[in-house]
Amino acid sequence: MKIRAAIALTACVCVACSTRGPDTPSKRDQEAKKLINKTDTTSNATSTAFTFEGYKKDIAERIAEVNSTKVYIERPQALLRAVIVIKYVIASDGKLLRSELVRTNHDKAAESIALLSLNNTAPFPKPASHLLKNGKVEISETWLFNNDGRFQLRTIALPQMTE
Results as ranks from 00 to 15, higher is better:
M1W: 11
K2G: 07
K2W: 06
A5P: 02
A6S: 04
I7S: 13
C12F: 07
V13G: 12
A16T: 06
C17Y: 12
R20L: 06
R20D: 05
G21Y: 15
P22D: 07
D23V: 10
D23T: 08
D23E: 15
K27F: 05
D29N: 13
D29E: 09
E31L: 12
K33H: 12
N37V: 08
T41Y: 11
N44S: 13
N44G: 13
A45F: 10
T46L: 10
S47H: 13
T48M: 10
F50H: 15
F50K: 12
F52Q: 01
K57R: 05
A60W: 08
E61L: 09
I63N: 00
S68M: 15
T69Q: 11
K70G: 06
I73N: 10
E74W: 11
Q77C: 07
R81V: 13
I84Y: 02
V85A: 14
V85T: 08
I86M: 04
Y88E: 00
A91F: 00
G94S: 09
L97I: 09
R103S: 05
H106P: 04
H106E: 11
S112H: 05
T121E: 02
T121V: 02
P125A: 15
P125S: 14
K126P: 01
K126R: 13
A128F: 07
S129F: 10
H130S: 15
L131K: 03
N134Y: 06
I139P: 03
I139K: 05
W143V: 06
L144Y: 04
L144S: 02
L144W: 03
N146G: 10
N147G: 06
N147Y: 09
G149E: 01
R150I: 05
R150K: 12
P159M: 07
T162D: 03
E163G: 14
